[in-house]
């Protein structure tokens, strides 16, 4: 049986350029009163700065979970993932890829870049918050994250 620890507040980094999806994610986290802090960056470059604490993100916390959208401007989500997993410090942070379709998921899967999980951005909000809740349950509550 897993021991239930005092819920630690974990920082979650959302790498997503679509404002609507960002808003939805915030709403979903709020809806479930998820105790974790959501940080948002709009592209891969900023994500890496955030994670390496460079540039404008010098004081950024180290997130315990990364939600990474596949479709990003300039550098794609998969490029970012590849770079993350090549960085000794960053490769331990679990990454969940957000894909828009089953087909896309298949393509991403074929890269086998060691993402921890894939979530298809669901068709509507009801399903979306369900997905977020499951992320919360699994990654943020049940599992001990290497933070």
């Amino acid at each position: 049986m897993t021991e239930l620890e005092d819920p630690k507040v974990i920082d979650v980094l959302l790498v997503e350029d679509d404002e609507g999806d960002v808003l939805m994610t915030r709403e979903a986290f709020e809806y479930y009163k998820i105790q974790n802090r959501l940080h948002v960056v709009g592209d891969g470059e900023q994500a890496l700065q955030f994670l390496r604490r460079t540039g404008p993100y010098a004081d950024a916390p180290r997130p315990g979970l990364i939600l990474l959208d596949v479709n990003l401007p300039r550098r794609s989500g998969m490029e970012v993932l590849a770079e993350l997993k090549q960085d000794d410090e960053l490769l331990m942070i679990p990454v969940i890829m957000l894909t828009t379709s089953q087909a896309e998921e298949d393509i991403v899967r074929s890269y086998s870049l060691h993402a921890n999980a894939f979530i298809s951005k669901p068709v509507d909000f009801e399903h979306f918050i369900d997905a977020i809740r499951q992320i919360d349950n699994f990654f943020l509550t049940l599992v001990k994250l290497p933070v």
């Binding site: 809806y31 087909a103 509507d124």
Partner: peptide, 20 residues
């Protein structure tokens, strides 16, 4: 079909959000 899904997702999701 693939590209039509995204805007549709917005319409469906935010209308539901509105409802909630």
């Amino acid at each position: 079909s693939h590209d039509l899904q995204e805007p549709l997702r917005k319409v469906a999701s935010f209308t539901q959000l509105l409802q909630r």
